[in-house]
Amino acid sequence: MLSAAGLLLAGAAYGDQSIAWADLLALLRGSGSPEARFIVLELRLPRMLLAMLAGMGLAVAGAIAQAVMRNALAEPGILGINAGAAFAASLVIVAFPDVHPGVLPWAGFLGALVLAAAVFGLAWRSGTSSLRIILVGIGLSSLAAAGTSFLTVFGRVIDVQRAMIWLAGSVYGADWNKVHVLLFWLAGPMALAWLSCRQLDLIRFGDDAARSLGQRVDLTRAGLILLCTLISGATVAAVGLIGFVGLVAPHLARKLVGPSHAGVLPVSALLGGLLLMAADFAGRIAIAPAQLPAGLVTALIGAPFFAWLLRGGRHVAA
């Protein structure tokens, strides 16, 4: 919590136009200049809170995916969520450039839901298995990625640039409305994920062991995948594609609190929120006044972590 408070204060104070600590303290006391109040309360604070919420959602979705797939390298993208959202958003931007911007988040959310449902449906053969879901997810994700590439190759340059900005993943342009909408979409699924801790603990032991303990494995897997899709799809719709948070945060959480999801989920959420807040803050100040998208910064962090997991042989089971 101290880290979160420190990041909030640093994020409020520093940027392309820094706020003096005296002015920041004055704001905390309810006074301060109108300029500082606008920069902190209307621009930076919503951005930091949106990053915190998005990071929490991605981390919890990643923890669910790793448990359901019993694979420590799993993340929501393995269900086709990212690829489906990317294709749907690119289609709206490139093929329908005059559509209202408010349609874009809904398109991304719908694309994530449709492709995740297709992955689960095609993997079903009188039941499901983690291996079939992973293989089908890889195949459909590649197909959706090919469709996205086709759109970017043959689309107008200005539309393709807009699509690339969205695909990079960023909390730039955050406002209080986006914070409230994402909070609304995440509240229910995140609460259900917390209530499903025991089911997550059981399913990670394997189908046979879970069945012997009374779990209805196929129904539970479907419900958990739906939760993962709702959480990740809502986050992607709000901030675009941001990778590696759902991979890194659950691993760090298990290192801190052990394998039980009663501890893993809340700690993953906290670490994911801090990670995305830190990534956005670093992207804002690294080459100010220009800004690096948060998705690019998380990739710079996550790629070495991914290599470390492979090198250490930690990819066999979550």
Rank of each mutant, 00 (worst) to 15 (best):
D218H: 08
T148Q: 03
A144V: 00
A116P: 00
A193F: 01
A238L: 08
G263S: 08
G233Y: 05
A65C: 12
G295W: 10
A86K: 06
R29P: 09
A123H: 10
T298Q: 01
A5I: 12
T298A: 01
I231R: 08
S170E: 01
L41R: 12
G137R: 10
L300T: 09
L300C: 14
L104H: 06
D23R: 05
L135A: 04
A144N: 06
A317P: 06
G233D: 05
H261D: 05
A85F: 13
T220A: 10
L271D: 09
S268Y: 05
F87S: 09
A145G: 15
A303C: 14
L113W: 06
L167S: 09
V171C: 00
L151S: 00
K255D: 14
L49Y: 08
A282H: 03
I225V: 13
G214E: 15
P34F: 06
V94H: 10
L135R: 06
D23T: 07
A249Q: 04
V99K: 08
A13N: 07
L91P: 10
A282F: 13
R162Y: 07
S31N: 15
A117S: 12
A74D: 03
L252M: 12
L8P: 04
A72F: 11
A146H: 10
W21P: 03
K178T: 03
A95N: 06
W21L: 11
S31I: 14
L309F: 05
L202K: 02
I287G: 11
A61D: 02
Q161N: 15
I165R: 12
A26E: 14
F184H: 12
L53E: 05
P289F: 14
A51W: 07
Q66R: 13
L227H: 07
F87V: 05
I19R: 04
L135T: 02
V68I: 01
L241H: 00
A209R: 00
L45Q: 02
A193L: 01
L113K: 01
A61H: 01
L115W: 11
